[in-house]
Write a protein that binds this DNA or RNA. Structure first.
Lengths: 238, 238
DNA sequence: GACGAAAAGTTATGCTCCATAACAAACACG
DNA sequence: CGTGTTTGTTATGGAGCATAACTTTTCGTC
């Protein structure tokens, strides 16, 4: 038995990295910005700024790690909320997943902006890199919902059934796992559902729906999610 | 006849301000970022950085002006595209307006991020300030579409007709001009349409739909806009 | 036309932060 | 113990924001 595959130092290093990211997220939430200063992170941690360069090459390097983490968090939040609902209640699962997406974004708009905002030119997500993988995993949490529905035979045809060849080709090319399970029109509807959910989430998280008021905004979200479900062919309980 | 209400100096100043903003937008497009350096603006203009402080108090001040301009630009682009289509062809008008929204965003994602990205904490839009006014004007370009449709009696009931009292109250409170013209369920549908359009636009502008490919993305957009129109009760030519 | 004030632009300067270099302390492991 | 790695420090340079003090240009007015 190798009781310690990770050395004491490796654990300490991992803990420090975790603390750095925690501090970074905390400062982002506090300042309301996406721009974290090494100086501030170091101050929070009781260190001097140059010490951080032992863990990250530069600010972009840290940013990339933060982005990966955010994708993981978001994906996990969506998956957890979705799986907490009866698998047979597809409408309920969709609502739960959508709500998790929304809540994750509006409780920490900075983290949401980190992954879905204007990409920083310094950090180009490496093809098949950890960030890209994390993004795929996170978004597939929504996609799996459609797969389950299709497999259960509960997925109804979407509102828009016309599908261009380009989209059908894209589906079978980029997502061959859907072949024979999720029809092209539902693949299209899935992307539309994501885009529609994403739009509301963006507008709310960045304050563009503040004028609506809390109660009305909640109601609007419920109506929005219901609209999307109907348009996408997700069965809602009558 | 007052042949010159604006003095020579005022014109020169206005021209310089326009040049500053032009330089700022150009640098944003070039760098791919939203962060413009006074140093760079000055360099482009053949000036020294401190000279810019004669025109803007600080970077946030310039930013606020840029944001207002972006709202104006976007609103004008949407209105122009919409009004270029036969007023009786509501589906066509909606498609034109949505396409203008999309194109404006994806041709210069930085400008889009400027107005719809994570708000910079430094610049708080003053209540009823020029920026807020510009935002209202811009967004009302989409709203007017629904008003026209309703007035023409061509607006059909949306996919989701259940409306909470909070939303109905919000509509008559914040937008009394719609009272008796646009029913609450269509007001709700209008916001949902905007959110859905906005979501696709955000995802595309920031590169999150690059994997789909150009042709499929165009088709997806057309399908998305068609879906939104149907869900919102905008009559589409069968 | 000439003078005084205002506007516009320049150089000089301080501050903060990113990033690197050079050095010191702590720690694992033989 | 003692040696090399890891982790942290202080010292330093460079870039950019912002202000201050000074110079030049421009406009209105006598």
């Amino acid at each position: 038995m190798t009781d310690v595959v990770v050395t004491r130092r490796e654990r300490a290093r991992a803990a420090t990295i975790a603390e750095i990211k925690e501090a970074a997220f905390g400062l982002m939430a506090e300042s309301g910005t996406i721009d974290v200063r090494f100086t501030d992170i170091a101050r929070v941690m009781g260190m001097t700024p140059p010490a951080l360069y032992r863990y990250y090459a530069d600010r972009d390097d840290l940013l990339g790690d933060l982005i990966s983490d955010c994708y993981e968090h978001l994906g996990a939040a969506v998956a957890q909320a979705r799986d907490a609902v009866d698998p047979d209640d597809l409408g309920g699962r969709w609502y739960a997943a959508a709500t998790a997406y929304r809540e994750w974004a509006r409780t920490q708009p900075q983290r949401f902006a980190l992954i879905f905002g204007l990409p920083v030119p310094g950090y180009v997500a490496p093809e098949d890199g950890p960030t890209t993988e994390a993004a795929k995993r996170a978004m597939s949490q929504l996609g799996d919902l459609f797969v389950s529905a299709a497999q259960a035979g509960s997925l109804r045809p979407p509102l828009v059934t016309e599908v261009s060849d380009a989209i059908a080709d894209c589906a079978s090319d980029k997502h061959p796992e859907l072949d024979g399970i999720v029809p092209p029109e539902s693949f299209q509807a899935m992307l539309q559902a994501w885009a529609s959910l994403h739009g509301f989430t963006c507008l709310e998280a960045y304050g563009h729906l503040d004028w609506v008021g809390d109660e009305a905004r909640d109601a609007l979200f419920r109506g929005h999610v219901a609209m999307i479900a109907q348009a996408a062919g997700i069965p809602v309980p009558n």
